Computed example of a mutant assay.
Amino acid sequence: MAVIGITSGQQKNGTECRIPKTYVKAIVRAGGVPLVLPVLTNKDILKKYIELIDGLLLTGGGDPDPRYFYEEPRPGLGEVDPQRDEFEILITGLALNTGLPLLGICRGCQLINIVEGGTLYQDLEKEYPNPLKHNQSSPGKYPFHTVHVKKESWLYSISKMTNFRVNSVHHQAIKEVAPGYKATALAEDGVIEAIEKSGDGFVFGVQWHPEQMVNDSVSLKIFTEFVNRVD
Rank of each mutant, 00 (worst) to 15 (best):
V177R: 06
V33G: 00
L58D: 06
A30F: 03
G32E: 05
R165N: 06
D231A: 13
Q207E: 12
I105G: 04
G78T: 10
K47E: 14
L90P: 01
D123N: 13
Y49V: 00
R29G: 08
R29C: 05
G117N: 02
L155F: 09
T22K: 11
L100E: 05
H170F: 02
D65Q: 05
G31E: 01
N130V: 13
I158K: 09
Q207F: 07
H170M: 04
D123W: 03
H145C: 04
I53C: 11
Y49D: 02
E188H: 13
K12Y: 12
I195V: 14
P34H: 09
L94D: 15
T15H: 15
T119H: 03
V214T: 15
K126A: 13
I45S: 09
G104D: 01
P34T: 02
F69E: 04
S198W: 11
R165V: 00
Q136W: 12
T7S: 10
I158E: 08
Y49S: 00
E16S: 12
L77Q: 06
P34W: 07
H209W: 07
P20R: 04
H134W: 07
L124T: 04
V36N: 02
G108A: 00
Q207T: 05
A194V: 11
L120D: 03
K221V: 10
S8D: 12
V39G: 03
L186F: 15
P139Y: 12
P20V: 08
G14P: 03
Q10R: 14
S168A: 08
E127T: 02
L35P: 03
M213F: 11
D44G: 05
V147E: 05
S159N: 11
G108L: 02
G117Q: 10
F226A: 06
G99C: 12
F69L: 06
G99F: 13
G140K: 08
F144Q: 00
G32R: 02
S219K: 09
S168R: 04
S138M: 02
A30N: 08
P34F: 09
Y68N: 12
G14E: 03
L37W: 04
G108D: 01
V28Y: 10
K150I: 14
S168N: 02
G117R: 09
K43I: 15
Q110L: 07
G14L: 06
K47Y: 00
I89D: 07
T119S: 15
D189E: 15
L40Y: 02
S198H: 09
K47I: 02
V24K: 03
G108E: 03
E116G: 00
G99K: 12
D81G: 01
R67I: 15
V206I: 07
K21E: 10
P179Q: 09
N130G: 11
V149G: 05
N42F: 03
Y49T: 00
V33P: 00
